[in-house]
């Protein structure tokens, strides 16, 4: 086993992420602030007359791995699209505005954190590309969810989804480095070949911790912001240890 291979162990990647975060405290601060902003938006929405879909946490008997393709913060109160119909203009503006502000804050904070951890300059096109991907994933399937009976029923699907999640761990970092979506996907896929189990361990540890912290009432998104920083640190560690040059 080479030295480079051993550094891509689960513990090695988590330790590297810790060191990178310690060296760049602004990255953690940005994501914690974004988490606090999401928590504030959640707090307001949960007390408003607007319907919200809550986050089912560990106290609800739900165990899940909350690990998305992009670095993100778990919200405990999202407004379902169908609930926006026929809202009075004041509440429509409030609901859409809060969701939008929270989303933009998380995108900005995660892109900023990744750029600091990757020691690169964040450009406007890279930020826009990252935000667009985050928005698309936000309305699609962006989080690994395997729980209860679903484990038995959908094992092949879950395994396939997990493989994709593991192989795309560096993807958000590559977007921040300025690569196109296609290039970022391709390079993530190739550079993680042979490191699947180590990255699976990272996804499991970070995703489970994210779920546990996000389960906390009110402060859940702040805890999720902390785990988003770890996620960003891991992304930076993987990219730097697989050592690929940026191909624009």
């Amino acid at each position: 086993m080479t030295e480079e291979d051993s550094s891509l162990s689960t513990t090695g990647l988590l330790a590297d992420a810790r060191d990178r975060l310690a060296a760049n405290p602004a990255a953690s601060v940005a994501l914690l602030l974004a988490g606090a902003l999401v928590a504030g938006a959640d707090w307001y929405l949960l007390r408003s007359p607007v319907p919200t879909a809550g986050y089912e946490g560990i106290q609800d008997g739900r165990v899940t791995v909350a690990f998305e393709f992009v670095v993100s913060v778990v919200s405990r109160a999202t407004v379902p699209p169908s609930a926006l119909l026929h809202l009075k203009s004041r509440w429509l503006a409030t609901a859409v505005g809060l969701e939008l502000v929270a989303f933009l804050a998380v995108v900005a904070a995660s892109a900023f954190a990744l750029s600091r951890l990757l020691e690169t300059r964040l450009t406007l096109p890279a930020l826009a590309r990252y935000g667009l991907v985050a928005a698309l994933l936000g309305v699609g399937v962006g989080r690994v969810d395997f729980e209860g009976g679903a484990v038995l029923i959908g094992i092949p699907l879950i395994v396939a989804f997990l493989v994709v999640t593991v192989r795309l761990v560096p993807f958000p970092g590559r977007l921040v480095l300025g690569e196109s979506v296609g290039t970022a996907l391709r390079r993530s896929w190739t550079e993680t070949r042979g490191h699947g189990w180590s990255l699976f361990g990272v996804v499991l540890v970070v995703g489970l911790a994210n779920h546990l912290l996000a389960s906390a009432p009110l402060a859940g998104p702040v805890g999720s912001g902390a785990m988003a920083a770890v996620h960003a640190g891991v992304v930076a560690a993987v990219i730097r240890r697989t050592g690929g040059e940026t191909q624009l």
Binding site: P49, V50, L87, K88, W91
Partner: peptide, 12 residues
């Protein structure tokens, strides 16, 4: 039977 209730955030 269902029931219809006024909803303060909604126009209906």
């Amino acid at each position: 039977p269902p029931a219809v209730a006024s909803a303060r955030a909604y126009r209906s």
